[in-house]
Write a protein that binds this DNA or RNA. Structure first.
Length: 465
DNA sequence: AAAACGGGGCC
DNA sequence: GGCCCAGTTTT
């Protein structure tokens, strides 16, 4: 019934299609006046690993393509290659119809297989892979130390942001033994500005473990890697696959997006993580597992982007159910994030007669753990709009308030800091380190603390690390 | 299961 | 201003 109507519409579109340039979702919806949910569930056509599309009709055919024109409708060209698999995925056509449809316009007729072809992705990767400083040459395995260092830095961090830090670290500590021999403070200072400072502390801990207890060799399995500080399920899989070619999935945000679209996974993140991981793992080839992991990431970074993905260039376009339904850009769905409260506090920039600045070390655990800061009152959401900042001062002095505020956004709250400055002729007895202005660039100062110092000193002579 | 944990780029 | 990013650890 619906199906008959559907075919009729398709034929109609085929006949008049040459003059139209329909966008992908419109075209498909038009075929049968079908909303996305009137098309069969993705699991039916694209189960993990196999499951060819069901023959959706055994009735007589309507002769699609018998009245073909020489070129497919413009709207179809815009989809890239539309083949048998895609048409069957709609399930509004019988095998016979869709195959004739494909042949009539010299489209590829793909028999039997509905799922994504790993070989197609790897072939795409061989041509389009990104050149990144931590990657080995094509066909080579990367150094496990390089892979590990880059993967820790890349946690929740963009490739662009990591690039400079990775080069600095590798240049300064070329081996895991040398990193292990470094002081934690030096590592934190080199990490300053990259964020998530627990990563730097775990990096140092793991370097010491690998250098001290494992003869400088990283575990070669995901299970072994998982036991090291700072290595979770993603990073364990990524290192095992990329450095050792163990058939492990590396499910990062790129993979989650690609797989959610490919299999039309509607469950919002993070609830969908288990399913996405299982679907990804089911695709991992026995050979070239590392290339597969990186290929999925490159696909997510270059083609299957969060916004405006370039589906016609995608090696998996035929199999992608999200694309068939015209809902690629709506995936993956994500649970709403709670809004961030505003917190306030006061900072005190102290300068001695020689221009040195007083810095104190934050607690090892918690926010910005182990990093340096000027004396800083507690910050909280409950600070009244008017309060006496002087009650927060570390010692009595002539505190001059700087005009304006320092604002900073953290993941889970927003911060407004008032800044007071005191220039002293004599250093008070107080815990902390006096750092010359020219040495601030090398200090373990997170970005928000650099903002405070710039605001307080009225100078930017020290650049963020 | 949910919260904590940074920062910068891009639209 | 909102969204996103080669996630992990703690509660």
């Amino acid at each position: 019934m619906l199906e008959k109507k559907c075919r009729a519409r398709l034929r109609l579109e085929c006949q008049r299609g040459a003059g139209r340039a329909l966008a992908q979702p419109d075209w498909y919806r038009k075929i049968g006046d079908l909303g996305p949910d009137n098309i069969a569930p993705a699991q039916d056509q694209c189960g993990i690993g196999e499951a060819p599309a069901r023959d959706c009709s055994s009735g007589q055919h309507t002769g699609i393509g018998s009245d073909r024109s020489t070129a497919p409708p413009a709207g179809i060209n815009r989809l890239g290659r539309v083949g048998y698999a895609t048409l069957c995925a709609l399930r509004s056509l019988s095998h016979g119809d869709s195959e004739r449809f494909a042949k009539s316009w010299n489209m590829p007729v793909l028999r039997g297989r509905q799922g994504p072809r790993v070989e197609a992705l790897l072939a795409w990767y061989d041509v389009h892979r990104r050149v990144l400083p931590w990657r080995a040459q094509a066909g080579m395995r990367a150094d496990p130390y390089h892979v590990w260092l880059s993967e820790i830095m890349l946690q929740q961090t963009t490739v662009q942001a990591v690039d400079r830090y990775y080069r600095t670290f590798l240049s300064r500590w070329p081996t895991v033994e040398q990193l292990a021999a470094a002081s934690l403070d030096d590592v934190l200072a080199a990490w300053a500005g990259l964020g998530y400072y627990a990563r730097a502390r775990n990096l140092h801990r793991t370097a010491k473990i690998v250098a001290g207890q494992m003869a400088g060799r990283f575990p070669e399995t995901a299970a072994g890697l998982r036991a090291l500080p700072g290595i979770g399920p993603y990073t364990a899989g990524a290192i095992a696959a990329i450095a050792f070619d163990e058939p492990q999935a590396a499910v990062d945000a790129n993979a989650e997006r690609v797989i959610a679209r490919l299999f039309y996974v509607k469950t919002p993140l993070p609830a969908a993580k288990a399913e996405l991981r299982a679907r990804t793992q089911a695709l991992v080839p026995q050979r070239r597992a590392g290339d597969f992991a990186q290929a999925v990431m490159d696909l997510g970074a270059l083609i299957c982007t969060p916004k405006a993905p370039q589906c016609p260039r995608c090696p998996w376009q035929e199999a992608c159910i999200g694309r068939v339904r015209g809902l690629v850009e709506t995936l993956p769905r994500k649970a709403p994030k709670p809004d961030r409260p505003l917190k306030r506090g006061v900072a005190f920039v102290v300068v001695d007669a020689k221009g040195a600045v007083l810095l104190q070390r934050r607690a090892e655990k918690g926010l910005l753990g182990g990093m340096m800061q000027p004396p800083l009152g507690p910050w909280g959401a409950d600070f009244p709009a008017e309060y006496d900042a002087m009650t927060q001062a570390p010692f009595a002095a002539t505190w001059i308030k700087r005009p304006g505020l320092v604002r900073h956004q953290f993941t889970h709250f927003e911060l407004e800091i008032e800044v007071y400055v005191a220039k002293l002729t004599r250093r008070p007895r107080i815990q902390g380190r006096w750092v010359q202005a020219h040495a601030l660039a090398e200090a373990a100062l997170p970005t928000v603390m650099r903002k405070i110092l710039v605001h307080g000193l009225g100078t930017t002579t020290f650049a963020p690390a």
